[in-house]
Design a protein around this nucleic acid. Structure first.
Length: 254
DNA sequence: ATGGCCTGCAACGCAGGA
């Protein structure tokens, strides 16, 4: 079972790359973020033609999440219960006995901003909900763009990023509370030869210089972590023409 | 040199991303 997550930064622009990537990687489940596509315009037919079913929750211009899967998705839920939010950032579904939560965490813009406060409140609400969700779904995966680099080693220049948004102590503590629910960062289950950056700025030739951050993650509940065989970042799509600024993260489960 | 790029919307520049 292969589980993946990819912030595509517009599904409309990236659809050919997504289809190509599905054919090459053949994941069982792919979580997408920043589809920026209203539900009526979601390319479900084109994706079905590649052998994937889709559940999605989108809006115009911003945000938007989807779960693509070979097997049918059941128990589909959109948003965080009890946290009213116009922004389409969460979709959950059960696929082949796996509870998959696909999430696009708020960016937070800058420390101390309104968007930053929203980000922290959003993560807190997600955490409270997942605490409940995990009791009913022991085999649970939280995959997506967390917009948090958990540790200094997840940042190409920790000194420059110190205290900045994506790296600030409150964000990292919020990430820690999520992990403390009993979730494991799949990438860190293994000794990694690479830093595992998943995002590089479009500017400054950041990808070529590997000036990246590891902000996209797959967190696994303990029963799932025990079955995890590998986890890594596929940098290939970041080298494409008109790439997303994020690369996919892939976890292999037994 | 704190800006450089990309996307969508709708307008010929803006917000937002990270």
């Amino acid at each position: 079972m292969k589980l993946a997550t990819w912030n595509v930064n517009s599904l409309k622009v990236r659809l050919p790359q997504v289809i190509e990537w599905l054919a090459r990687q053949q994941p069982d489940v792919l979580c997408l973020q920043e589809t920026k596509t209203e539900d009526g315009a979601f390319p479900a037919i084109a994706l079905q033609a590649t052998g994937y079913q889709c559940v999605f929750a989108g809006q115009k211009t911003y945000n938007g999440v989807a779960i693509l899967s070979r097997q049918p998705a059941t128990g589909v839920a959109v948003g965080i219960p009890g946290f009213p939010d116009e922004q389409k950032r969460v979709i959950a579904a059960t696929v082949a006995g796996l509870r998959v939560i696909c999430a696009y965490f708020p960016n937070g813009q800058s420390v101390g901003s309104d968007k930053y406060a929203y980000k922290l409140a959003w993560i807190e609400a997600l955490t409270a909900w997942l605490r409940q969700e995990m009791t009913g779904h022991p085999r649970l995966a939280l995959a997506g763009d967390f917009n948090v680099a958990p540790e200094a080693r997840d940042v190409h220049d920790p000194a420059a990023w110190e205290g900045q948004v994506l790296c600030s102590p409150p964000e990292r503590e919020a990430f820690g509370r999520l992990v403390a629910l009993g979730l494991a960062d799949a990438f860190r289950l293994f000794d990694q030869a690479e830093p595992g950056y998943t995002w590089w700025d479009y500017r400054m030739a950041a990808f070529r210089r590997n000036l990246g951050l590891r902000i996209d993650h797959i967190l696994l509940s303990r029963p799932l972590a025990e079955t995890c065989l590998a986890c890594g970042v596929d940098r290939l799509p970041r080298q494409a023409e008109r790439p997303s600024d994020h690369a996919p993260v892939v976890a292999e489960l037994r």
